[in-house]
Structure formats: structure tokens, C-alpha cells
Design a protein around this nucleic acid. Structure first.
Lengths: 218, 218
DNA sequence: GTCTATAAACAGATAGAC
DNA sequence: GTCTATCTGTTTATAGAC
């Protein structure tokens, strides 16, 4: 049986998860059938129940896949000691924003990952709990800490936490509103040049906000 | 003509659309069954096919409902002449941000409306075209024009258009990421007090960005 | 216009051969 | 582990009574 993909149980698991990620991202959880996923993964329907216990188990496995994938990108954020100098903290935040928006707009895997999280936010499931604890909460907390160093403010104050959320919101918006943005910007395609323009705009907003924070609360 | 009666055909149409909006927003298009919609609307399954031709027709009818509903809110944005003074333009943008975020977070109808648009962005259908032309494009263009007055920059320059998108992104993020935000902010509920905190943060970011724009490009 | 009953296609889960 | 065949329930669409 030549299927064009590696054999073995582990390869099958991976193939199913990746096929499910594509389906869930493009059409949603309920709209993506197990038969469709199995066919896309080059296997049969029963293997989904065998490997994941059912469709819900597959959804959880996708969440773990998302965490592992995004964790690799964001580990650079969580790793290492907190910057001690405001200027360095500011540069670190800028770098994270640029790296994050580049990943979200250019990496082909990012599309399904972001879409998966977005759908979990609309229809919360146990998978969202997992993603929140392993991904969203630690990253947000670390970003708040860095923001605190950059501005001299209390990192866990409501306003700093909200400002960090607003910054994240800007970034992810450019991912999921892509069809509207491309149309309004007259961008036939969204390549590195366009991403740099977006990153420049987001960095400018970030810098303006950080500077304002430092001025008003020294 | 005999209309406005609670039991007429028009009332049935409205009830079905509103029930469908709730279902589509909470669980998605595919996951919401026609039986469930009919039951929620207090009618039977067959009436959906009778009034809308089928489930797809109901989806288009929901898009028109969204446009009509948001049109009422956004007419306040589009109405009147453009401000001529930078300070007034700045105040106008601030007011729009505050009104928009308050609407998105407090109005019960806004939740399903925003969620419907969000799902259209993930799974584009003919409804998205309609919403873009009638709603998103005019509002964004008007916001860019006001931004131009407030900062003295070219309203249709790529960076202004992107900055306006970023501002919009911040706002809508607080709508769809609500479960994550409530959890991280330790907010058991999201009422007027919490919305004001969000609005303050967004207004601060807006002001910082506008001031930076005016300084660097007088 | 509203509703019941039904049709035809679909879903996810599973038993059992290999 | 992989797969076919099948079970059970649900979906949308529709025919026809009222």
C-alpha cells in the first residue's frame, strides 16, 4: 500500500492531526467530517477512534499540536532572564511583535494554528483550557513583566495587562482579518514586503504607547 | 397592508433570523441545526425552507440582518462633515473607539453580530462581500480620513490605513477573546466598569499613536 | 402560511476480519 | 495497527394535509 507517507502508528497519528488541523481551520470543527479527515490523512475512519478515542480526542490532540508548535515560536519570549534596562525591554518587546506578526502572516502552518485558537475562543472546549494554561497565560504574563521593565509600571496592574492584550489583539487581527485587509490595502498577495509594512505600523504603535506610559508614570 | 402582527409571516421570518444569528454565533454555521433554529424561533423546520429557500438562504438573510443592525450603529460614524480641526478629529476618533468598544462588549446583539462577521472571515461566503462593501470599507475609509485630519498625514497612505486597522483590531480583539481576557483579568463578569477600563486603555493607545504621528510628520 | 411525516444523505462510533 | 462493513442517530430538504 503505497500512500506516499511514512508508515507506522506515529506517522498515522501525525497525518491525522495535520489533516484535522487543516479541516478545522478552514471549515470549523462540526463541519469537518471524520471520513474527510481520514481520507486527507490517507487512512480510514476507524483509525481516528483507535488513535484518539473519537473526534473529541482528536480535537484535544490538535490543541496539543498547537501548543507544541506555537511554543517553539514563543519560547524565545519566555526563555532567559527578564531585561533589567528599560531600553532593552523595549527592544525585546519590539522584536517579539515583529517575530510574532511575521510568523502569523508568512508561516503556512500559522494559518491553521491561529484559526484553531480563534474557533476555540468562539466555541470553548476543554482544549481552550489547555491552550490557555500552557500558552496564552505564560506568554501574556511574561509580556506584562517586560512591559513593566520598559515603562517602570506595575507589570500586573490592570492597565498594563489590558495594554498587552491590546497589543496582542492588533497582531492577531491582521491574521484573521486578512481578506478584508488585503482588499482594502490593494494587496494582491501578502509577502515579506507587506508584512514588513504591517510590522512597522505595529512597532510604531507599540513605541508610542510605551513612551507615553513612561512619561506619565515615571 | 396587514403587517406588524406578532403572528404574521414577517414576524416568523424575523424570529427565524434572530434564532439563527444566536446559533451561528455560538456554535457555528454547520453545527447549528435547522430543527434547533426552528424550535428556538417557535416554529417548524419546513418554514425555513419556505421563507429562505434553505439553510444557505437563511445565512444570506442573516448577513443582511447584520448589515442593517450595524448600519444603525455606524451611521453615527459616517454621518456629518469631516472635522477640520486636528483636536476635534482626535476627539471624534476617541469617541468612536469608546462607543464601538462599549457596543461590542455590552450590547447583547453585538455579540452575535461580531461573531457572525468573524466566522465569515474564517469561511468566506458571498455574505462577506456584501458586508465588506456595505459596512467595513466605508467605515474604514471614514476613519482614515479623520485620522488624516488629526495627524496631518495623507489619509490614504498605507501606514495610516494600517494604523486604523490596528486600532480596529484592538477593539474587536476584546470582543472575541473575551473568555481569555476575563480569566486573565480576574473578571467574573464584564460590566460597564470593566468596559470603561478597556476603553481607557484603548483611548490611551490611540492618543499615544496620534501624538507620535503628528510629531514625526507635521 | 404552518405544520407533520418522511425521504435520502450524512454523521461518529464500533465489531470483527486480517 | 489497519481496514471494511455496519449500527444508530442526525442532518437538510420536501411532499402533502390543513
Amino acid at each position: 500500500m503505497a500512500r506516499g507517507r511514512p508508515k507506522g502508528a506515529d506517522a498515522t497519528r501525525t497525518a491525522i492531526v495535520e489533516a484535522a488541523m487543516r479541516g478545522f481551520a478552514e471549515k470549523g470543527f462540526a463541519a469537518t467530517g471524520t471520513r474527510e479527515i481520514a481520507a486527507l490523512a490517507g487512512t480510514n475512519v476507524a483509525s481516528i477512534a483507535y488513535h484518539f478515542g473519537g473526534k473529541d480526542g482528536l480535537r484535544l490532540a490538535c490543541a496539543e499540536h498547537v501548543i507544541a508548535l506555537m511554543g517553539g515560536v514563543l519560547d524565545q519570549v519566555r526563555q532567559g532572564d527578564l531585561p533589567s534596562d528599560p531600553a532593552i525591554a523595549r527592544a525585546a518587546l519590539t522584536a517579539v511583535v515583529r517575530r510574532f506578526v511575521t510568523f502569523l502572516l508568512l508561516d503556512p502552518q500559522a494559518r491553521s494554528v491561529a484559526s484553531f485558537i480563534l474557533r476555540e475562543l468562539s466555541e470553548p472546549s476543554p482544549a481552550l483550557d489547555l491552550i490557555y494554561r500552557a500558552l496564552l497565560e505564560p506568554v501574556h504574563r511574561r509580556a506584562c513583566a517586560t512591559w513593566g521593565v520598559a515603562t517602570g509600571r506595575d507589570p500586573e496592574s490592570p492597565d498594563v495587562r489590558l495594554a498587552v492584550f491590546a497589543t496582542i489583539g492588533q497582531i492577531v487581527y491582521f491574521n484573521f482579518a486578512r481578506p478584508v485587509i488585503q482588499r482594502r490595502m490593494d494587496w494582491p498577495s501578502l509577502g515579506p514586503a507587506e508584512v514588513e509594512a504591517v510590522a512597522d505600523t505595529l512597532a510604531a504603535t507599540l513605541h508610542a504607547r510605551l513612551d507615553a506610559d513612561r512619561e506619565h508614570r515615571p
